[in-house]
Design a protein around this nucleic acid. Structure first.
Lengths: 187, 187
DNA sequence: AAATGATATATCTGTTTGATATATCTGTAT
DNA sequence: ATACAGATATATCAAACAGATATATCATTT
């Protein structure tokens, strides 16, 4: 049987707050979640269909937003009780795979085959990206800092501080690594 | 055509130092590389076959180690000049995708649906894993610290310091997050 | 001689990515 | 009004990938 689909839990987690369409789910994943997970339409829509069959989600009422005339086709999904149980089982199963795929580090690992200037350039590009993301994370942090009395917001907040502290460490490393390589370049 | 296979560059990078079998390649990936990339047999063997067709790698001589009698079947691959060029093009193309898939953070993000004790437990498990990995990285660091005058070793060294500084940041965050959640649990 | 565990190659199933196709709706400029 | 750009929405496909498993050989111990 199936049951190795991690995306299921992302979807159930999002639906535990509100009913959403596949498109909405993709937008949520591309928001605050993208710092530690990602998902594509190619996994979201099939997962929704499979979970509907399994009774973990159902199609929610399809009113168009303003109750106006015949709105466009739009399928929102809602979580079921079975879905909530599945989500809780996952939260409590004590297992978690944590994997990076950092192409920048891969390029650095094999950077001995190229010029040192290439490695410096690759690290600099990485640093620019991280700086941009860090700026965004700090906006998230500011927006959340008033409401961490709420249990849910506190959990969001902790994932944001994880991102911030991690990215700050990246930037410190970038500076050191560039310095080290620059020194090596000058012999 | 194909050409979105990132694993190709891992394999070419490894083969640029020495000829290796698919099994050897897997072992290398599970070594120092696993901190920022991973690969499975299901991607390695097909990639080797495809790259042989493309002329990026060739089958190397298949002697059994001691020149003894008829050794067991064993297919080592060597990089070609075209392979080296492909590796260099990749190192210099200025593109890199850097993505995490951290299930622990996902569980924390949706942790509002469970007990705070569950979140604390999930963070603690993460911390234990990271502490173990960090110990290993420090061994790598010690082994390399004498030879960073060598350009290749210097590059390895920088990927190790990336891991160390990142993991140290994780551990600081773990301690803070557990403290925050413990306080919240007590109200 | 038998058992065990490491080495070695390969394949299979299911999942996921990344790209693309199709179409509708909304706001804006002409 | 209308044309258009850009956002919304659903869906699908090929290629890439993970994780598990099957098979077999070799080296070492028992």
């Amino acid at each position: 049987m199936a049951k190795n689909r991690k995306i299921d839990m992302v979807i159930l987690g999002l639906l535990s707050h509100e009913s959403l369409t596949g498109y909405d789910i993709k937008k949520r994943i591309d928001g605050a979640i993208r710092f530690f997970w990602k998902g594509s339409y190619g996994s979201i829509y099939p997962a929704l269909a499979a979970m509907e069959t399994q009774g973990l989600v159902t199609r929610a009422a399809e009113t168009d937003s303003d109750g106006g005339s015949c709105g466009r086709e739009k399928t929102a999904y809602a979580i079921t009780d079975n879905g909530r149980q599945a989500l809780l089982r996952w939260l409590n199963d004590g297992k978690a795979s944590n994997d990076m795929k950092y192409e920048t580090l891969l390029k650095l690992f094999f950077g001995g085959s190229a010029d040192i200037a290439t490695s410096i350039d690759n690290i600099q590009r990485f640093g620019v990206e991280i700086r941009d993301e860090l700026r965004l994370l700090r906006v998230y942090q500011d927006n959340l800092s008033g409401t961490i009395g709420d249990k849910e917001h506190l959990h969001y907040y902790l994932t944001v501080t994880f991102g911030i502290e991690t990215y700050e460490a990246y930037l410190r490393w970038c500076a050191e690594a560039i310095q080290t390589l620059t020194d090596a370049e000058r012999q």
